[in-house]
């Protein structure tokens, strides 16, 4: 089977661009990235469908000349699903903007705490729950700082 190079290159560049956008902070940009990713993937299905041919309408052309209809059906389903998810993500971006004034994807609570410690050059202490406070060897890294 020979594949269509144009389709592959287009799909690859769409997916490449989408990866760049996915690494952004703003949810809107991430969303644009996801849309491009979806489009790139849908093109891959066209590649998977094999050589192009006549429309797969029974009775018009013989079965050998038709293009494979199944990937198109799959792509249609994928497009519908992507539409729903995109709408939901847009709503979330809007809600996030309502609440925070921005739509940045925020950090894991734990990660944020760890980063704050790292900024102050503190060792991570898991709290000594039995004595009721950060344990005493906590002072050592502070002296170092």
């Amino acid at each position: 089977m020979s594949a269509n190079l144009t389709l592959i290159i287009t799909a690859a560049s769409l997916i490449g661009v989408s990866v760049y956008l996915l690494l952004e902070r703003s949810l809107t940009r991430v969303l644009v990235g996801l849309l491009m990713l979806g489009n790139g993937v849908n093109l891959l299905f066209m590649v998977a469908a094999g050589p192009s041919g006549h429309p797969p309408v029974a009775g018009k052309v013989s079965a050998e000349d038709m293009t494979d209809p199944l990937p198109q059906a799959l792509v249609l389903t994928a497009i519908v699903i992507a539409l729903g998810t995109t709408a939901f993500a847009l709503a979330m971006a809007y809600r996030s903007w309502q609440l925070n004034g921005h739509d940045d994807v925020q950090d894991d609570v734990e990660d944020a705490a760890i980063r704050r410690r790292a900024l102050r050059d503190e060792a991570s202490d898991s709290y000594d729950l039995t004595t009721g406070g950060p344990d005493d060897d906590d002072s050592a890294p502070e002296e170092k700082a």
Binding site: M1, L22, L27, V30, L34, L37, G38, V41, N42, L44, F45, V47, A48, G50, L70, P71, L74, A78, I81, T85, F88, A89, M92, S96, V105, Q106, D108
Partner: peptide
């Protein structure tokens, strides 16, 4: 929390589609 969850899952769904296309091809 939902933002991260949704984005992760959308990416994994796209990966799943790529896998399906590859399997079909």
């Amino acid at each position: 929390a939902g933002t991260i969850y949704v984005v992760i899952n959308m990416v994994s769904s796209a990966l799943f589609l790529i896998a399906i296309a590859a399997v079909y091809a």
